[in-house]
Design a protein around this nucleic acid. Sequence first.
DNA 1: TTGTAGGCGTTATCAT
DNA 2: ATGATAACGCCTACAA
Lengths: 334, 334
Amino acid sequence: MTIKDLAKKTGYAVGTVSRALNNHPNVSPTARETILRVAKESGFELNINAKQLKQQRTTTILAVVKGIGNELFAQIVEQLQALLAQSPYHLAVDYLDEDKNEVHRAIQLCREKKPIGLLFLGGNRQFFAEDFSKIDIPCVLVTNEASGLPFPNLSSVSMDDRKAAYAAAEILIRRGHRKIAMIGGFREVSVTSRLRYEGFRQALEDHQIPFDPQQDYQGVRFSYQDGYRATMALLDAGRQFTAIFAAADVMAIGAIRALRERGLHVPRDVSVVGVDGLPLGDYLVPRLSTIQQPIQEIAQRSIAILCSCIELQAPACHEILPFGEKESESICNI
Amino acid sequence: MTIKDLAKKTGYAVGTVSRALNNHPNVSPTARETILRVAKESGFELNINAKQLKQQRTTTILAVVKGIGNELFAQIVEQLQALLAQSPYHLAVDYLDEDKNEVHRAIQLCREKKPIGLLFLGGNRQFFAEDFSKIDIPCVLVTNEASGLPFPNLSSVSMDDRKAAYAAAEILIRRGHRKIAMIGGFREVSVTSRLRYEGFRQALEDHQIPFDPQQDYQGVRFSYQDGYRATMALLDAGRQFTAIFAAADVMAIGAIRALRERGLHVPRDVSVVGVDGLPLGDYLVPRLSTIQQPIQEIAQRSIAILCSCIELQAPACHEILPFGEKESESICNI
DNA sequence: TTGTAGGCGTTATCAT
DNA sequence: ATGATAACGCCTACAA
């Protein structure tokens, strides 16, 4: 079933059929109505390959996701899907390992799929600095701040990671904690990790709390396992702390497990605060105290920005969204 | 940059270039070598729209995933991606809500994307019975048994859900439990849920343990929240039990949380066993006892079967894979 | 082994 | 408002 068959069936020419199908002007209401009706009746769909071949452009927006196991990203992808379903665009999702070079992958995928816009979920600053200039379509870095990467086609939408970490630290400080260890990411490599570290440090400084980055900061991957290992490393090194700030909920979960294996109870012996606000956190024992990412708003703004860059050639922009604080059972007063 | 440009650059005709690029025979080694080299040098990629338009077939294998939050599926998708990356095919992933009709969605997507094969991650038996006959390309139902759905183009790869549930029940029975409640799915609707229920019941029967399906079975969705609610419902109804068998790890996690809120400790007061073997389970307190899905093998066999159906018109088949048992901290002797 | 040319289904330009 | 027609980039008979 092609547009030609539809033309025969309705008695119109292919040109008219095409115009009707694409909501173009210069089609009589009668023609439009008949054509659309017959198309629906016969379950006709435009051949997307022919269309895109002719138009020399796809309707694909590609999301490059670092780490398929990342629940936070899974939730954002879900939102993105829903939002784009009501747009003329189509979302393609590509997952790659957390360690891989997402910019290289994106460059490759641009050649293959010719997307009109890119969403990066997670990103390594270094990779962007090195190769992002090879990408010339509008992009949004989602959940990562990118204002330090001055590319004219790279926007970003994220929560205020520095303030978020500051808030997390204050939650602990308010409860009397003054010996706080931090489990975070690699801050040379990940902007998010650096900002969360800085916010944390700032809070400590503002409250005159000492901190030894060499000893009390563990830079690891965002996973259960690494949260576990990092905590073990802290304990093995004999560090003294009454609280742990984990830069992600998954790390916090690994940390809690590690503490327990050394006979330390949360929150009785050690308080733990995470970041992200995964739904899971509410079902753990103890419920996780955390900073809530504004998932919905992040997804909405990312799409809105990307679309305005695509459609109106809007300049890149960097948006920072407010977060929520969730104080729950994994913390207590000292 | 098109195949024509490449023809000019190399001095060959487009036909030869096309043949070289597609590894067809009847190309001299010299020609092939030059063409491939120049193509690589200039970063040339075949225009996939033109190719597919001409060939009248895509290289798309489409995975329809029910429930983006489902960690088990996320892990399987990861494996599928890796496996298909080394094949001539290309994986497109589509997520839809757990309650939606995946067969309708698949029919729609077949029109839009014209995939050559389909993978269903999760599926509702009813939806398949009603409309699957409208799909005529090879399909594999992944993690769900489909031998009861006698469509010539529908294969399935799953673990032996009945035996898995039987094994889970026996883990509890071996430890002296005789009052066991079950939290499962809707067994009229989901084959998996029915099989897990049957396996569980069989184990109880084989050990002469009574069970009241009306009172001691909760049929709910596969989520933290529903595991939580189902457990609350059991407790509110005053059911007496020393153990809970949850048909999924996520339900088990919700259950553990609910028990704790009623002052019941796991495993001291109630033992809990789940199904799936999520990595998370090892980091919970207590570590979750569970049945391990053979993720890797499921992904491998699914792809292998789908490809042989696509390429060799192999008949549909239904494969059942062995599972693992993980006895851990969420259970104890009575 | 290599070259040539028709056509895949659509859009868009140009007539009518 | 509608109709005819030339591309879009590629594959594949078929001819050389």
